[in-house]
Amino acid sequence: MTNTEVVHDAAAEFMNRSTKTQKVQAVLHKFPWLSSAVVLIISVITFSFFNENFMTPNNLSLILQQVAIIGAVAAGQTIIIMTAGIDLSCGAIAIFASMVMAKTSFVNGWPAWASFTLGIIVGTGAGAFNGYLVTKVRLPPFIVTLGTLNIFLALTLFYATGRTIMDQELDPFYLKLGYLINIGQFKLTTGVLVMLLMYALLAFALRYTGWGRHVYAVGDDIEAARLAGIQVNRVLLSVYMTAGFIFSITAWIVIGRVAAASPNTGSTLNMDSITAVVIGGTSLFGGRGAVFGSLLGAVIVGVFRNGLSLAGVDLYYQTFAVGVLIIVAVSVDQWIRRAHK
């Protein structure tokens, strides 16, 4: 062994001596969704222990159907939160897009494809408007989307004139995502599958494309990203537009699920989606997280609500439990961050 090798070995040993806690932190740092996966597994086991009806294909299918909408919105919310932003207007965008789709098709008699396309354009445009205010007018995302939440809400009510469009009035195209399909003993709606598909595409883009890296870099340290030659405004705008697009696809899922287009739904979608993202391990400070975790987060909330109500627990306690989950999730995120300071 030469001298330098000895030095390097000593260095290696010096670097690799970390405690068990630090190792756990390091793993969680690398796979931020891991802690939520553990929570999900534990809660599923616990609930099935307390109630035999929990672990049935029927009930599990029901949970998935219930989380389809929140899950879909959470996908878009995740990429915005990854850039250290937040979107309070997501639900309003989804409902606005759903009313545009339903009304142009039913009231104006447009063919389904045309009304659907317009709905997508409106939703993506709403996202672009948020992105414009964030990047060009340089307002904080919280303020921007608090404002546009109210604007989109008002536009929706104004446009819909308070009227719900019922299922028999809707073009059959819009009910397609409410269809049930059997996979083994499981009954999933097509809406669930569309949601899962969006997650798969987003996870791919974030993990394997340059765009994905730039999204992380911008959320991580925007000035460093800018100096490294990333056009940060373009990345941010693309994120808000992609999210708007996802929210307008969600509009389609919403119509399919409730078999109607109503201007009065979706008011809690913003908070519910943020809850899912946070429980899924994505950091509100940006730059850290995995979109897959938000799906787990949405499912965890669904499992908690479903499991607790099967166990006969009051709605109040369910909500209480979700609150505790959020605080625990953020504490874990902070703990992981501190480990690397």
Binding site: R213, Y216, A217, D220, D221, A225, A228
Partner: peptide, 8 residues
């Protein structure tokens, strides 16, 4: 300030 992205 190096312009390095910490999490990457």
């Amino acid at each position: 300030n190096l312009a390095i992205s910490p999490a990457l």
